[in-house]
């Protein structure tokens, strides 16, 4: 569990100006579930935690990652054929079954759609087991919206809404913060399960907007991030008060973490 297993990059898709989706294949790779993350190694440079965005079975992993530092820059530039080190799976999973028989609201901000993509796919794959399904996606600009083809496909079977901070020429969609879409999502507050991922502050505001609509905190699932280094609870970096996010998270029910997120610099 300390040494990464080499996986081959078999596909690289450019998503936005700074974001790519890599498809990796490793022999006899273990199964990863939605919500879990892998530690990806750029050999000689370092290792970063990246959530699963697809695949997860048969040694095939799909990860969408943004170029924000030395390691992600190296991974971002990985060409098909190149080897990347993989450790994992680590962490808790999105509990999609918790939403069976209920309305579903999925709210993503920016690259937060990446870890939620398997949730949308899982829900749509068993569409009749769920009530109304809303997918609300916020991004800085239209060009920062991930997975445009998926969004189009999802629209056929779910209420998919996108909103941007800064419209570009030709954008006729919504402009504003993703929270403004919450009151319009078609969902029965007493019978809805929500899944959120995005910047921590955004998730707090979205969760509060959902709670104002009448959702219970334990029906809101969030994916949190701190500096996960080892993935196994041995390195101490990803603590949030009593929680080791790599081990106890990254996916939590909001009522459990809300008091912790309120404390400055915890």
């Amino acid at each position: 569990m300390t040494a990464p297993v080499p996986y081959r990059v078999v596909d690289r898709r450019v998503e936005t100006a700074d974001t790519v989706t890599l498809e990796l294949v490793g022999e006899d790779g273990p199964a990863f579930a939605p919500g879990q993350f892998a530690m990806l190694t750029a050999y000689g440079i370092g290792e970063v935690p990246i959530s699963l965005s697809g695949g997860g079975r048969g040694g095939r992993l799909i990860h969408t990652l943004r170029n924000v530092g030395a390691v992600t820059a190296a991974l971002h530039g990985a060409a098909p054929g190149q080897m990347i080190g993989v450790r994992g799976p680590f962490g808790t999973t999105w509990d999609v079954d918790a939403a069976r028989g209920h309305d579903v609201v999925i709210v993503a901000g920016g690259i937060g759609l990446a870890p939620l993509r398997p949730v949308v796919e899982a829900v749509l794959a068993r569409r009749d087991e769920f009530g109304r399904v809303s997918v609300l996606v916020g991004a800085r600009t239209p060009g920062d919206l991930l997975y445009p083809a998926d969004l189009r496909r999802w629209r056929q079977r779910a209420d998919v809404r996108t909103i941007v901070d800064r419209p570009a020429d030709g954008w006729t969609g919504e402009v504003g913060l993703v929270t403004t879409l919450i009151p319009r999502a078609e969902a029965d507050p007493d019978n809805t399960v929500a899944y959120l991922c995005g910047p921590e502050v955004m998730m707090r505001f979205v969760a509060e907007a959902l709670i104002r609509r009448g959702l219970a905190g334990h029906d809101i699932h969030v994916s949190l991030e701190r500096d996960m280094r080892c993935g196994a609870g041995w390195c101490g970096h990803c603590q949030l008060g009593p929680l080791l996010l790599c081990r106890d998270g990254p996916v939590f029910r909001y009522d459990r973490v809300e008091p912790l997120l309120r404390v400055r610099e915890l």
Partner: peptide, 18 residues
Amino acid sequence: TERLQATRLRLLDLWGRP
């Protein structure tokens, strides 16, 4: 107040961090 709060959050441009 809701629109003001949303605007304030947008001013923060939180997208700088994934």
